[in-house]
């Protein structure tokens, strides 16, 4: 079980890369805990989480090859 993680905007300054594979996470909460352990600055950042291009507001189960994206506040236009 491995998911694809996409990191955008200012969050990619923290993670130092914009795409990575993450193994052994069953849901978005586990993923965030794992990421925050690895990149403590994430805990201080505001962002939403999208699973397969849909923003989720609650802990969401993940399955193999899901794409999870960390989205800081949008600033287009």
């Amino acid at each position: 079980m491995e998911i694809n993680l996409l990191v955008f905007g200012q969050l990619s300054d923290i993670t130092k890369c914009s795409e990575m594979k993450i193994a052994h996470v069953n849901d978005t909460q586990q993923l965030i805990i794992k990421l925050t352990t690895q990149f403590p600055e994430l805990a201080l950042s505001k962002y939403s989480v999208a699973v397969n291009r849909k923003v989720v507001f609650e802990n969401t189960m993940l399955t193999d090859k899901d794409t999870v994206a960390l989205l800081p506040p949008f600033s287009g236009g």
Binding site: F8, G9, Q10, D13, A50, A69, L71, P72, P73, F74, S75, G76, G77
Partner: peptide
């Protein structure tokens, strides 16, 4: 226009003349 600003996952990196930058906030 308002919906694009609010809903589209797009980010602006503001580049300064000395090539440093900051992330745009709406």
């Amino acid at each position: 226009t308002e919906q694009i600003k609010a809903l589209a996952p797009v980010w602006g990196k503001e580049i300064f003349e000395d090539e440093t930058y900051t992330w745009k906030e709406l």
